[in-house]
C-alpha cells in the first residue's frame, strides 16, 4: 500500500516537472518572437528619434549640401523614381514572359528544367555580384564607361528578374486547369488561352509579386553603389544617360560622413525610404488579400 503511494507521488512529481518544463519553454519560444518584434521596434525608434527633427518640406525639395541642415533628397528621390520606372518597364514583360513560357509553353524537358534551376540559383546570387556584372557588361562594355541611369536600371532588372519570374509562376499555377480546359474545348489555341484566360486570372498575384520585387529594387544599394559610384549628385537625371544617385546610396553616403550631424539627415532619408517601401508592401498585401478569397474556387 505504502509502496504504491510512493510510486504515485513520484509520478505526480515527474508530471509536475514535465508540465513546468513545458510552461517554461512556451515562454522561451514566445520570447524569440518577442525579440524579433522588439528588434524591429528598436530599429524604428532609433530611426524616428534621429531623423524626425530633420524631416520637413525643404528636405524633400533640396539637393545634398556640404552642410547637413541644408541638405535634401531631391536628387536621390528623382534617381530612385527613374531607376524603378525603367526597371519596371524592363522587368515586367521579361519576367512575366519567362513565367508564361515556363508554365504554359515549355514542355517538361531537360532544357526547361535547367532554365528553372538556373532561375532558382540566380535568386540566391549576392546582389554585389550583379553589381560586378553590371559594371563590366553595361557600364564598361555597353556605355563605354558612362555610369548612367540605364546601366543602373538594367542591372536592377537582372537582379529582380528571378523574383518576378518565381512570383508570376506561382500566380499562373494558381489558375485552375479547368479554366484552361474550357477555353481549349471551345477551340482556342495556346496563346489565346494565355491571353484571355490565364493572364487576367493570374494578374493580381503577379502584380503583388512585381510590387514586392520593385520594392526590393528600391531598397537595394550594393549593386547601385558599384554602378553609380558617385557620391555627391546635385541634379535630377534628365535622360536615360544621365548620372544619378538613389535613396539608399545617399543614405550610405551620409552615414559614411565623419561628422555626426549627417547621421540625422541619413535617418530622415531612411524614414522617407521606409514610408515608400511599407506603403508598397501594404499595396501588395492588399491586392493579394482582395483577390485571394474568390468564393467560386
Amino acid at each position: 500500500m505504502n509502496k504504491q503511494d510512493s510510486i504515485i507521488s513520484k509520478r505526480q512529481k515527474l508530471h509536475a516537472v514535465r508540465v513546468l518544463r513545458d510552461r517554461i519553454f512556451v515562454v522561451g519560444f514566445a520570447l524569440a518572437v518577442i525579440a524579433g518584434i522588439l528588434g524591429l521596434a528598436a530599429l524604428l525608434f532609433d530611426v524616428l528619434i534621429d531623423g524626425l527633427p530633420f524631416l520637413n518640406i525643404n528636405f524633400l525639395t533640396s539637393y545634398a549640401s556640404r552642410k547637413a541642415e541644408n541638405s535634401g533628397i531631391l536628387a536621390p528621390l528623382a534617381g530612385t523614381i527613374w531607376i524603378v520606372g525603367m526597371t519596371a518597364l524592363l522587368t515586367i514583360p521579361i519576367g512575366v514572359g519567362t513565367a508564361i513560357y515556363l508554365e504554359e509553353f515549355a514542355s517538361k524537358n531537360r532544357l526547361n528544367r535547367l532554365i528553372e534551376l538556373n532561375i532558382a540559383n540566380l535568386a540566391g546570387v549576392p546582389s554585389v555580384i550583379y553589381g560586378l556584372l553590371g559594371l563590366a557588361v553595361f557600364v564598361q562594355f555597353l556605355f563605354n564607361g558612362s555610369r548612367n541611369v540605364t546601366a543602373g536600371a538594367l542591372t536592377m532588372t537582372l537582379l529582380i528578374l528571378p523574383i518576378v519570374v518565381i512570383a508570376s509562376q506561382e500566380a499562373i499555377k494558381a489558375v485552375p486547369s479547368s479554366y484552361r480546359d474550357a477555353a481549349y474545348a471551345m477551340g482556342a489555341n495556346r496563346w489565346q488561352v494565355v491571353k484571355a484566360v490565364v493572364l487576367p486570372q493570374a494578374l493580381p498575384g503577379m502584380m503583388s509579386g512585381i510590387i514586392l520585387a520593385l520594392s526590393r529594387a528600391i531598397g537595394e544599394s550594393a549593386p547601385i553603389l558599384i554602378i553609380s559610384s558617385l557620391v555627391w549628385v546635385t541634379f535630377i537625371p534628365t535622360s536615360p544617360d544621365s548620372k544619378f544617385t538613389v535613396l539608399p546610396l545617399q543614405i550610405f553616403t551620409w552615414i559614411s560622413q565623419p561628422q555626426h550631424s549627417f547621421r540625422g539627415i541619413a535617418a530622415a532619408a531612411i524614414i522617407v525610404l521606409l514610408i515608400v517601401l511599407l506603403s508598397m508592401n501594404g499595396i501588395a498585401i492588399w491586392i493579394r488579400s482582395k483577390y485571394q478569397s474568390r468564393p467560386d474556387q
Binding site: 530599429l43 531598397g219 544599394s221 550594393a222 543614405i251 550610405f252 531612411i270 525610404l273 517601401l277
Partner: peptide, 8 residues
C-alpha cells in the same frame, strides 16, 4: 523585418 533595406 525581411523587407527593410540592408542600408537601414
Amino acid at each position: 523585418l525581411a523587407g527593410i533595406p540592408t542600408v537601414v
